[in-house]
Nucleic acid binder design. Structure first.
Lengths: 214, 214
DNA sequence: GTCTATATCTAGATAGAC
DNA sequence: GTCTATCTAGATATAGAC
């Protein structure tokens, strides 16, 4: 098999196993076994297990950056807000092993700590810009003290909705409705600060998606 | 040394190390070393490492149950709300290793999964009762759909504020202000649904504590 | 590129003397 | 109750043949 293919196979197998069992519970032997290659072969393509994790993180970060980099339009609508959250939640679900315990995974793969921090900082900045845009268009009204706390709460929800949901839902994120519920949760934090009609629009959107699970 | 004392020493040493380094990163040898006893001695007092974790969890759960079991008075005031949150956040800080990754720790110590679930269920029930009490006294107004999502958001915040804070604050929970900020975050989720004066009371309380770090 | 075989290390846990 | 010595298992990673 060509170099690229085996490398890719290892990455995909690792991602699946990490998501299912948790990265610390998956050995390189297990990955090789599941991919039907030898442990030695795996180590021909990757220096070590960390390399695999880092590569997966990099792919995730690249895609998330693309999602949050969407320029904030002057006329930000409820659908836009929902849509961007949906894209980022979807992506995080695909790399959910990263979110079970970011601290622990960072401590085992040192280079990841800075990467995580940077990513979170950019995500927070994107949320901040979005709120500013809503304020300027008159769709939102919030004090700067409240905004600070709201951003914290949003980041908390956007980071930890995955392990939170996995703890309660027996089938974890397989149930598509879990994501919808988590998005609705994040949006409910924002809604109280929105103006009358923008608020109604968002609320209706949430109700619609909650009652139409894919 | 008497049996009780060594057992207790192991528990306290384990708790300190688990909190500092994360339970998966602390070996029984390390615990014995730190406690100045032999590995063999540790295994005389505990069947295995899981036993230590379970014992620590049990102590935590007992204390948390006591805190949330406080009967909800008819005239629930802002201070009461703040005080109960403060007690539970304080306790969770003392056993923070349990919250870094509840799922992972449950998967390594099977009996813990049900225990965690039960505890979270009781905690959610307590929050629900508190909200009901606020509604009945007229201090709060919220639809049943909103209430469901609010309870989710509160549980998310009350469960994961610890790893969230540890990720951002360099000194982790040593900084007393981190707890205050987390409590303020949880309360800000509730405030929008409160009546005018109750809302003002809570907001002022939060501002007071935030500007007076212990 | 891929395999088999193996080296190395660490963690959990036990045996048996004192 | 406590210690020293040791066993076992499993994980990461490497060596060298094909």
């Amino acid at each position: 098999m060509a170099k690229r293919n085996t490398r890719e196979l290892v990455l995909q197998t690792s991602l699946a196993l990490f998501n299912e069992l948790g990265e610390p519970n998956v050995s390189t032997n297990r990955i090789a076994d599941e991919a039907n290659i030898s442990p030695g072969n795996l180590y021909y393509h990757f220096r070590n297990k960390q390399d695999i994790v880092v590569e997966l993180f990099t792919r995730f970060a690249t895609q998330l950056d693309r999602i949050i980099a969407v320029p904030v339009s002057a006329a930000l609508r409820a659908e836009d807000l929902w849509f961007q959250l949906h894209l980022s939640f979807e992506l995080k679900g695909q790399y959910r092993f990263l979110f079970r315990n970011p601290i622990d995974i960072s401590s085992r793969v040192p280079s990841l700590r800075r990467a995580f921090m940077g990513l979170f900082r950019r995500e927070r900045k994107a949320a901040e810009d979005m709120i500013s845009s809503l304020e300027q268009s008159g769709a939102m009204c919030i004090s700067s003290r409240e905004k600070e706390i709201l951003l914290n709460n949003l980041m908390l929800a956007m980071t930890y909705w995955i392990p939170f949901a996995e703890m309660y839902e027996e089938h974890g994120l397989q149930d598509g409705n879990v994501q919808i519920k988590s998005i609705a949760g994040a949006l409910q934090m924002i809604i109280p600060y929105m103006a009358e009609d923008a608020r109604a629009e968002l609320t209706n959107l949430a109700i619609f998606y909650l009652s139409h699970p894919n």
